[in-house]
Amino acid sequence: MATSSSSSKCGVRYIGNCGLKVSNLCLGAMTFGSTEGAMFHLPGQSDEAASHAILDKFVEMGGNFIDTADIYSAGRSESIVGSWLQKQAREQIVIATKVRFPMGAGPNDVGLSRKHILSAVEESLKRLNTSYIDLYQTHAWDDGTPIEETLSTLTDLVRQGKVRYLGLSNVTGWQLQKIIDLTKYKHYEPFVSLQVQYNLMCRETEWELGEVCKREGLGILPWSPLKTGWLTGKVTRSGAPEGSRVEHQGKDDTAKLPFLRDYAKEEQTWQILDVLKAVAEESGKSIPQVALKWLLHQETVSSVVIGAKKMEQLVDNMGAGDDSWKLTADQLKRLGDVSDIMPLYPYSIMDAVQVQRRRNGLLVL
């Protein structure tokens, strides 16, 4: 099976409706740094030297967009990116990070309050060794803080020049629309992107979040595009590779995320993998490349957040960003059909009654 060569270059796109251009593949830095003492405990993390080598190769292959978060490896991910950034031409790199989760034991060391955001952004700037953050994202909704407090604080950061653009992550449809509407009504700084789980095994994102982003001009940045390893082709009915995240979460009964082993019980999982394998063979590409390319064909997607613990993983994944090849209409239909899920109420009814009322692909009431 063919894979990408190291000479492959990924393309560039605008993020949503804003003027910022980024590589169509974004390097996620969640795998950088030891997770000892961190909120998320993950196997096979990269040390600083290995992380820098991956970052160097990513840029060499056309990447300019790097995503991290203060919570990743308890701040060590940001520090690793920051030490690497010192050796780069800063204006050529787009750095994204996030705020929301606990960074200490105090009652104000978590959330999206003005106090926590203002403290967190200063710490992120120090770790990243930069005077500004290109894309500052709220990592999840915070039910404990009035949304106006969060939005006004983020607006101040943009106007102070500490942040260039604003993004969201991990919100529901009503939360996303409420944020957008308040931003317009109160003249807060607008949001340009939504980072959310989206892949061939997670299509629920399309039901509301995708529709809101399409209508409001936000670019989607899919995380876990390979479903934590499920869509690499390495997981079989007999099990997952030793040391992989699928295998790790299959053993971890304390995991807060849905047990990935549960997907093995679903016949649709194996049907998706069968079609992925067939399309990969037809295209002369790897299974991960096809899974990533499917996302890049979705109109709301601006850049896909990939992660790599090994250099060969990165090089292969980067081949998906090469704009010189596309999936055919038939291949896209087969992948879409096999991964489709039956919508729940009210989406099922809304979709059915709007058949004759669609305008430019959007549902019209």
Rank of each mutant, 00 (worst) to 15 (best):
S5H: 12
S6H: 07
S7A: 06
K9M: 12
G11L: 07
G16E: 07
C18K: 03
C26K: 02
L27K: 00
T35Y: 02
H52L: 04
I54V: 14
R76V: 07
I80K: 01
I80A: 06
V81R: 01
I93D: 07
T97Q: 03
R114A: 10
E123M: 05
T153D: 14
R159H: 15
Q160E: 15
G161N: 12
V163N: 11
L166Y: 10
T172H: 11
L176D: 09
I180K: 06
L182G: 06
T183V: 09
K184Y: 08
K186M: 15
Q197K: 05
M201C: 09
T205R: 01
W207S: 00
G210V: 06
G217E: 05
W223S: 04
W223G: 05
E242S: 14
G243V: 11
S244R: 08
T254D: 03
K256Q: 14
K256S: 12
D262N: 15
A264L: 03
V275P: 06
A280C: 09
G284A: 09
V290Y: 01
A291Y: 02
H297I: 05
E299A: 06
V301W: 03
V304A: 03
G307H: 02
E312G: 00
M318D: 00
G319H: 06
T328H: 08
I349C: 13
R357N: 15
R359S: 13
L363E: 13
L365I: 10
